[in-house]
Simulated scan of single mutants.
Amino acid sequence: MARRNDHSKDELQRLALATVKDFLNLYPSQDLSLRKVAKLIGYSPATIINCFGSYGDLLLAANAETLDELHLLSNVAVREEVYPQVALRKLARIQLGFARKYPHRWQLAFEHRIPVHKALPEWHQMRIDRLFALFTEQLSRIEGRKKLQDIHIASRVIWAGVHGICLLAAGGGVISEKHTSGEQMIDSLLDNYLKSWVSNGQLSTTTS
Rank of each mutant, 00 (worst) to 15 (best):
V162H: 09
C166M: 12
G164E: 12
I158A: 04
R145A: 13
G172V: 09
I175C: 05
R130A: 14
A170K: 10
R127E: 02
V174A: 15
T180N: 04
I142C: 09
W159C: 04
V162C: 15
L134Q: 05
H152I: 02
H152W: 06
L120V: 10
G171E: 11
I165K: 08
S181D: 00
R130E: 05
V174N: 10
I153S: 09
K146V: 06
F135R: 04
I158C: 02
W123S: 01
E137L: 10
F132H: 12
I165Y: 06
L168M: 15
H152T: 07
R130Y: 00
V157S: 00
F135E: 01
I153V: 15
H163A: 07
T136C: 13
I142K: 04
H124K: 01
I175T: 11
E183P: 01
E143P: 03
C166V: 13
I151P: 03
F132V: 10
C166E: 06
V157A: 03
D150A: 14
G173F: 07
L131S: 02
R145L: 03
G171W: 09
H124N: 02
R141I: 02
L120I: 08
I175D: 09
G144W: 07
V174D: 13
E137N: 12
Q125F: 03
L148N: 14
R127M: 01
R127L: 11
G161V: 12
D129H: 12
I165D: 03
A169Q: 15
E143S: 14
A154H: 07
S140W: 08
D129P: 01
W159M: 12
A119L: 05
R156G: 03
Q138H: 01
H117V: 05
R130M: 05
K147T: 01
F135M: 08
I158T: 08
H163S: 11
G173T: 09
G182R: 04
S176P: 01
L131A: 04
L120H: 03
E177H: 14
T136R: 13
I153F: 04
C166T: 14
A154W: 03
I142E: 05
F132M: 13
A133D: 06
K147V: 01
H117P: 01
I142F: 00
I153N: 08
E137Q: 15
E183K: 12
H163W: 13
G164A: 05
S181I: 07
C166Y: 10
A169S: 15
A119H: 10
K178D: 09
K146W: 02
Q138S: 07
H124A: 11
S176C: 06
R156W: 04
I165M: 04
E183L: 09
G171Q: 03
S140F: 06
F135Y: 13
R156F: 05
V116T: 05
G182K: 04
K178Q: 15
H124F: 13
Q149K: 11
H152E: 13
S176L: 11
K147G: 11
F132Y: 13
K118T: 14
I153K: 06
